[in-house]
Design a protein around this nucleic acid. Structure first.
Lengths: 236, 236
DNA sequence: TTCCCAGCAACTGGATCCAAGACGTGGAGT
DNA sequence: ACTCCACGTCTTGGATCCAGTTGCTGGGAA
């Protein structure tokens, strides 16, 4: 009877379409900058253009795609400064989440966090060998770690806003960072460990501070990726 | 050439419709809990149902309205706990905005803040005598005060997220609080003054702390209003 | 060869059409 | 008199239709 999400609202079909399109963008199946043609998506999903249009409008509200008048929708290409701004907001919010979580977290939840972190690490190790394409499962461990803390905070709005910010940027990009860069992966793992330690110790200040730094750092790395990308794209 | 908002995207008509419907809800012209019938709105604005539906979907994404499957859209009636959650998030974000603003604010902007605050106070005094209906201009002063600080922060995403949260709750409600409750009005004014003082003094810690408290307090008052309302509605 | 303009094909955006679901009413049966 | 079911109406949701716009392409002129 109790939904985890607050979404009992919304027509099944359109929300489903929005979710499926979002997944394609998030996984990199539809790359940033790509056009989203209504007819194509409609045919793909076996529906008419009408619900597709509404789904696209929903994604536009979220900020993932951009709809240009009479020219259709494209997947937004975030500017590096946008990434930094968004991650500064996210850092502030997740710091609050961590602070609130300190007083509420259970031993079981601490264990879940440790497991999610370990999964991320192990999977990214495996995937850096195999060279997995698309959305590596290591990213899922990372997502889960942050999502868990947001949920443990007990503030559903907080969790939702954090999630909305994350859905601004396709995941396959930040996934590559974890998988390909050994130092990044190790630091990420270590920072997560420190956050868990602070949560376990009941140290509100440290938990919030570690989380803030951790997120800002991740944002900086993501922003640098986009910087590098745009310079290679625009100058050869 | 330089837009203040980031919204060059979006078809004129649908965005315009969404904006107009939003205004009606925000001003209380369409009260919370009311049904939004597509045909009615379409006739009202002289368009077909199609763009209205897309506009409603956009508002749904924002969280202002709720769309029930096959039963249409209604203006959401926020539960008191939702108000508290949202305002806790807002407090955290505006605290960051205030902290960032300390190092960036100019004398001119300080003056603008003082003026917005004074306007809010004067107008709410006048309106409490006249008993203004709808959306009193005193609310505009209050909105402007907070919006200004968010903008001065220099982080557009931060300003946008704060704005999105504010658009969860119709303004005419919180406007009533300022206009009708003398103590609330005075405290509001005084708290704004303290925030401005901290900004002027370059005291980052105090600016953030004052802002956080101020927003939490406002949220508590708004939540209590909704609590009172629901008890009168459901029990007579 | 290069630039410009006209025509064309493709796509979006708004209107209309039709089917399916929800609610209210009224009548029949107990 | 009360309950339950069936029918009718109203509204939404999806499909289709049509007009308007964009951008491309090809031909002609400088």
């Amino acid at each position: 009877m109790s939904d985890t999400t607050e979404e009992k609202t919304g027509h099944a079909l359109v929300d489903d379409l929005a979710s499926r399109i979002r997944n394609r963008v998030m996984s990199g199946e539809i790359p940033i900058g790509a056009q989203l043609r209504q007819a194509e998506l409609a045919a793909d999903f076996g529906v008419s253009r009408t619900p597709v249009r509404e789904a696209l409008r929903q994604l536009q509200s979220g900020g993932l795609i951009e709809v240009l008048p009479n020219r259709g929708a494209v997947v937004r290409v975030p500017a590096p400064w946008e990434v930094r701004e968004a991650y500064e907001v996210r850092a502030q919010l997740e710091a609050l989440a961590a602070a609130r979580a300190v007083d509420r977290i259970t031993d079981d939840q601490l264990e879940q966090l440790r497991r999610a972190n370990q999964e991320m690490y192990d999977n990214s190790l495996a995937e850096s060998r195999n060279g997995a394409a698309g959305l590596p499962v290591s990213r899922l461990g990372n997502d889960r770690f942050h999502t868990l803390i947001a949920e443990i905070s007990g503030n559903a709005r907080l969790a939702k806003v954090v999630n909305d910010i994350n859905e601004l940027f396709p995941r396959n990009v930040s996934a590559q960072l974890i998988v390909n860069d050994t130092r990044h992966r190790d630091e990420n793992f270590r920072e997560h460990e420190r956050i868990v330690a602070a949560l376990a110790a009941g140290d509100t200040e440290t938990a919030a501070a570690e989380m803030r730094e951790h997120v800002i750092k991740a944002g900086e790395q993501l922003a640098e990726w986009y910087e590098k990308r745009s310079s290679t794209v625009f100058r050869g």
